[in-house]
Amino acid sequence: MLVAVGLVIGVILGLVVQPTIPAGLQPYLPIAIVAALDAMFGALRAYLDEVFSDRVFITSFIFNVLIAAFIVFLGDQLGVGSQMTTAVVVVLGIRIFANAAAIRRHIFKA
């Protein structure tokens, strides 16, 4: 419950405050968001699988975000930034779909 409230508050804050993203952070924020989404779907699936752990969620969330951003940063340094972004998004997207499928099976039994 508190999680849903947090999500709503975050979105509203973002819409109201409309902060400017620092230029240095701009290429990494979208990737960080996708990584965070992945972590959230993973957490929901783990919860429904009854193996959810707060510790695992918090660490995986932070690590996923940082590693995704770091990979893209590395790609930028190597001159393959856009390809690396695509690669990360593809991998995370596959994971999100897999998690979503697991969640769907839990909820609809199908």
């Binding site: 979105v11 804050l13 959230m40």
Partner: peptide
């Protein structure tokens, strides 16, 4: 953390 994600996404 989730609020942070929502904030960033928005």
């Amino acid at each position: 953390l989730v609020a942070l994600v929502g904030f960033s996404a928005a």
